[in-house]
Each structure stands twice: as C-alpha cells, then as structure tokens.
C-alpha cells in the first residue's frame, strides 16, 4: 500500500465512518424515544417510521461518497492501484465535508426527530411539522454531500 493510497483511505474513512457514526447515534436517539412512545400506543410504529429513519440518510451520503472514491481510485478492479500523495490528499479533502457535516447533523437531527416523535404522540395532527423540522437539519448534510461529490468528481 502506498502512502497516497493510505491518505485516500483516510478520506474514505472520514466520509463513511463519521457520517455513519452520526447516523447511528441519531437513530439511536429516535429509536429509544419511539420505543417509549410505542409502549403506550403499540400501533403507532408505522406512523413514526419516517421520523425514526430520518437521521439515517447521513450514513448513506457518507457511504455513497466513500464508494465513489473507491470506484474512482480503481480499487474495485482487483489490483492495488498506484495513488500519488497529491491524489490521496484530494480524496481526503473530498471526504471531509460529508463526514463532518454528516456527523454533527445526524446527531442533532436525531435530537430534533426524537422531540418530534414525542410531539406527534401528543399532537398527532402536528406530524407534518415534526417532519419538516427534522428535514431542516438535514439540509446541511445535503450541502456537505454535494460539496464532497463535486470535489471528488471533478478534481480527481
């Protein structure tokens, strides 16, 4: 493994692991609250499903960036590709936006959605508002993802 490939690997790690960790924490939060709410109202699982799953998208964004990087580097071809240090640094830079934005936004989105589940359990008519508030947080993960994508697609 060359140094360049290692640095590129760190970029992939940043994208996939940080965003994924954020999503895991976020869904952890929403899942716990939903389980509490469902103990009172067992039939409401389908109703809260969207709010529970919402913080999961960051992990997917991170994974998409990670996979595209793997594809672009030619790792899927089966042989170890030559990667220059400069290229590795580029991948590292490309992975950072989605990783960091994903980590922070997924955790906070989890908090918002968890509160939203509680709100919707008491005011079922406000489900739509709870969803929209959750998606407000997601915007910044989307922006991070897009930045990562363009860095990856047009620079490398």
């Amino acid at each position: 493994m060359t140094v360049g490939l290692f640095i590129a690997g760190m970029g992939i790690f940043t994208a996939v692991a940080l965003a994924g960790a954020g999503s895991a924490i976020g869904i952890g939060l929403t899942g716990q609250v939903a389980a509490g709410v469902m103990s009172e109202d067992p039939k409401s699982f389908g109703k809260y499903l969207m709010l529970i799953a919402l913080p999961g998208t960051q992990g997917i964004y991170g994974f998409v960036i990670g996979f595209l990087a793997i594809m672009k580097l030619g790792i899927l071809s089966g042989s170890i590709p030559p990667v220059s240090i400069a290229k590795g640094l580029n991948v590292l830079a490309a992975g950072a936006p989605v990783g960091l934005a994903g980590l922070v936004s997924a955790v906070n989105q989890g908090k918002v959605c968890a509160a939203g589940i509680q709100m919707a359990s008491k005011q079922p008519a406000d489900m739509g508002k709870a969803l929209v508030m959750g998606v407000f947080v997601e915007t910044y993960a989307v922006l991070g993802f897009l930045t990562s994508f363009f860095l990856l697609w047009f620079v490398i």
Binding site: L49, M50, A53, L54, I60, G128, L131, V132, G134, V135
Partner: peptide, 17 residues
C-alpha cells in the same frame, strides 16, 4: 424503501417550506 422514504420527506419539505 429507504430512498422513497427519503424522497417523500424531502419532497414534502420543499412544498411546505
């Protein structure tokens, strides 16, 4: 499933906000 869920929520947000 996962993406139509996301698609539905985000589309809804664009309408609402």
């Amino acid at each position: 499933l996962i993406n139509s869920l996301g698609g539905f929520i985000h589309t809804t947000r664009l309408q609402f906000v």
